[in-house]
């Protein structure tokens, strides 16, 4: 049974419409099942399968942004099937993290590529097309003879270099934006232009500080640039609410105001750490000074982010 768990958007309250367009179930559903939430236009959120999964549906078929954790792949597939019986055409990965690409193999195998040109019937082969930045392919694969971090069946089939890629699926343009090195060196933002939804991957999270992997090309400053890029893409409705909706890497659906709050937090923390470094403080001293303590209650343990920020800022990147 299709279970919709409320909807994004903030219609006027001058009529008795829910601010969240929520249905009126009798009990709040807090089970461990994967939840489906309509976001806006053709885009839905699947929550509870690792990282957030965005699903765009339409006449062409299904486009997935990220595939969640590997152990939940079958459940994710069954949940996707509640939304549409059309074939999975595209999978877009926002990064190479396990909770984002874990379901690639199962879900890609369940799909069928879009085809065209001289191929009769538009058939272009089994399996969905897996699209990601080149950095994702590098992180998941390995030279011949060396162990790869993911099976080859899960690798991107279409890895793009540079800073953007365009797709067209289900009657809307889909823009993939690589904002530069952020959490890793292969992050992508995915912007559904007609539905007006941005899927951010881990550049923006509603549950934690950004996890920045400097050893794999990540950058604290790059995360900040990525957040500003998201804000550039989003346009709020009146009262700085709604409008372009944002699906973060983890946690609840958001809008520009939520991203602004997060961006400002990262900016404030960067400035504090930068100031401490200028005063000659060591990493241990910075940690002891707890420059994130006003946000720790909301976002949890800041250790990894503080270390990444300190390492990057102190070497003048």
């Amino acid at each position: 049974m299709l279970k919709l768990q409320g909807k994004a958007g903030t219609p006027s309250t001058s009529r008795p419409a829910s601010p969240l367009n929520a249905p009126a179930p009798k009990e709040r559903d807090r089970t461990d099942e994967i939840q489906i939430l309509p976001v806006q236009g053709n885009v839905y959120l699947l929550a509870g399968a690792g990282a957030n999964i965005a699903v765009q549906i339409g006449d062409d078929g299904i486009l997935l942004v990220d595939t969640g954790s590997a152990p939940l792949s079958d459940k994710v597939l069954a949940t996707v099937r509640q939304l549409s019986n059309k074939p999975i055409r595209y999978i877009v990965n926002t990064s190479a993290r396990q909770d984002h690409i874990g379901g690639n193999e199962v879900l890609a195998k369940a799909g069928t590529k879009m085809g065209g040109g001289i191929l009769v019937g538009g058939y272009a082969g089994d399996g969905a097309m897996v699209v990601a930045h080149l950095g994702v392919l590098k992180a998941m694969s390995a030279p011949t003879g060396k162990p790869a971090s993911a099976p080859s069946a899960a690798w991107p089939t279409d890895a793009y270099p540079g800073d953007s890629k365009e797709l067209y699926a289900n009657a809307e343009g889909v823009e993939l934006v690589h904002p530069g090195a952020a959490n890793t060196d292969g992050d992508s933002l995915v912007y559904f232009r007609r539905s007006d939804v941005v899927v951010t991957g881990d550049i923006f999270s509603m549950t934690s500080y950004p996890v920045i992997d400097i050893d794999k090309g990540g950058s604290f400053t790059g995360v900040l640039a990525g957040l500003n890029r998201i804000i550039d893409l989003t346009i709020p409705k009146d009262w700085q609410e709604g409008g372009t909706m944002v699906i973060p890497g983890h946690g609840r659906i958001a809008d520009e105001a939520d991203v602004v709050e997060y961006r400002d937090m990262i900016t404030i923390i960067r400035d504090r750490i930068q100031d401490m470094i200028r005063k000659g403080m060591s990493l241990e001293q910075v940690k002891a000074a707890r420059p994130t303590r006003d946000y720790d209650g909301r976002y949890g343990d800041p250790t990894l982010m503080t270390e990444a920020a300190y390492r990057e800022i102190s070497r003048g990147r």
Binding site: Q5, G6, K7, A8, G9, T10, S12, T13, S14, P16, A17, S18, P19, L20, A22, P23, A24, P25, K26, E27, R28, D29, R30, Q35, L37, L45, A47, W239, E241, G242, M245, G251, R252, I253, A254, D255, D258
Partner: peptide, 25 residues
């Protein structure tokens, strides 16, 4: 702030993954 709606029909609050607003639910 924004106009508020207070639902009296016994409906549940939305999913924890639903968006937040200035006036809340």
């Amino acid at each position: 702030g924004r106009p508020r709606t207070i639902w009296m029909d016994g409906r549940a609050h939305p999913s924890e993954y639903a968006p937040h607003t200035w006036s809340g639910f």
